[in-house]
Design a binder for these strands. Sequence first.
RNA 1: GCACCCGUAGCUCAGUUGGAUUAGAGCACCGGUCUACGAAACCGGGGGUCGUAGGUUCGAAUCCUACCGGGUGCGCCA
Length: 569
Amino acid sequence: MNVRALLNKRIGAALSQASGADSPAAVQPASRPEFGDYQANGIMGAAKRIGMNPRELAAQVVAAATVDDLAEPLEIAGPGFLNITLQGSFIATTLAAEAPLSAGINRQTVVVDYSSPNLAKEMHVGHLRSTIIGDAMARVLEALGHTVIRQNHVGDWGTQFGMLLAHLHDVSDADQSNELADLEVFYRAAKGRFDSQPEFAARARAAVVGLQSGDPDAQAQWQRFIDVSLAHCEEVYQRLGVALSRTDLAPESSYNDSLPTIVATLEQQGLIEESDGALCVFLDQFTNKQGDPLPVIVRKSDGGYLYATTDLAAILYRTSSLNADRVLYYTDARQGLHFRQIFAVASAAELAPEGMLLEHHPFGAMLGADGKPFQTRAGGVVRLTELLDEAETRARQLVAEKNPDLDEAEQSEIARVVGIGAVKYADLSKNRTSDYVFDWDQMLSFEGNTAPYLQYAYSRIRSLFRRGDIDADSFAAEISPTEPQEHKLGVALLRLPEVLEQVAAEGFPHYLCAYLYELATTFTQFYEACPVLSADEPVRSSRLALCNHTARTLKRGLGLLGIETVERM
RNA sequence: GCACCCGUAGCUCAGUUGGAUUAGAGCACCGGUCUACGAAACCGGGGGUCGUAGGUUCGAAUCCUACCGGGUGCGCCA
């Protein structure tokens, strides 16, 4: 149950009735503990609009609002705030009921376009943010009951594959597996020859033509290369715990056949102009350096198509074949203009129906501690496999330091969960729109808003149940919050649904991280103040139930971020 | 030149779409808590004219305008 939405509804209704106009109640969690659990801010604004004294209006709202089944009597405060404190019994029954997260959700079919690496090379840190953030969003949307269709729009087509195929052609069959084991090296070798050997470059271009015209040999070689590259990606996805499989693939090449149709459609609509031999769509709202209209080029002067055309084809596919209500694109911020243009063209050409939501959710760059783009010491790209290796190595050292008594296998497993979780959480916990600084020490710290801190909080609760010899899965007891820390923890536990809905609406997983961190700190405050196992019944059972609920919420929340937990660490 | 994003504590970041005469966390710094329901934790302290200057109003880190500073993008790569 979304308590915030419920309060908005109830108080909003009273406000509309009292003010005679539709006004949002603007309920949000209280900014300070002395103001209760939630506060309604909407009364001042409504009073201004109708020229009424805000405190008078507040009094009428209090009289008209029916909240006595969930809250203590509403309090008017300051210039016209309403302070809301939830009843302990409401907290208890709501937590006990455990309504599904999908309750009350207007279900949509949502396409989430994420990861989308270029298959010509190995996955590197540039792919990390899209992969992690997109995956978390897909999980959250799914948990809320939406139909989520993951789309991994991998780059498997284009001129660069010509040189890769030409180079592959020169390698004996026996050596191919070896050569392709390191795609980064392979790519550099091919690129080196392309730039320095005219004969090779010519063959590379010929290979592109062969590929595009459906030459069986070229196709077979290409397919082989793609398979190897995809296997690399899947290895990374598996290690990251990212739920992308071959069925989620929507490679660029899959749109090849529909590209001429897209251009023809645009032509029929009279949107196409020819400029220097290229077919373009000009839209007034986009201008170039000279202030002239900026084209979206959909077909090059040599007849080839571009990613703009492919993206338009993808929009058509997603609306007509996938029946998407909403499409979310997780790509870096530099592509912002591209997507604004593509969405505008799609709208002008009516490729997407009116109500369909196309949203680019951009993110900033990953920077090193020096504030410059995150690179290896040599200045090269950091491969994801290497990054994840280092995360596990560093976590392994920490585990060995902190808990040397655990056996080797368990230490390794904990290191894996903590190391990978730390990398993912560091990214997810920051506002995705800005650049972020990648800092090993910060993300692996057990202090502050980090994955290890949350995982630790979880493992402490599990430890409590072990110590008490209580089976958490079958444990059930009524929660009756009496101490302030118990009340605060109960309210925090109720907030998961409203936070998830906000994440889904705005595409910001860091809201969920902030929530989980707050939940964990609220829990430790409770845990410091309120003895559990040594308490007398029924307080003991009530507190155990709070602990159990907290552990489940932490695990569930982290799970929605794609982060695992361990029973001890 | 135009467009988009961003300037918040020494550092890394929040700030729920305009809310509460004390702008929050975590690092780092200073000082307290363990013969442990896990100290991998907790409690307290110092540290900010929210880039600058105006404006809008009961009320601004948040909205508007102009500057300053940083990042990114702007015709046949993706």
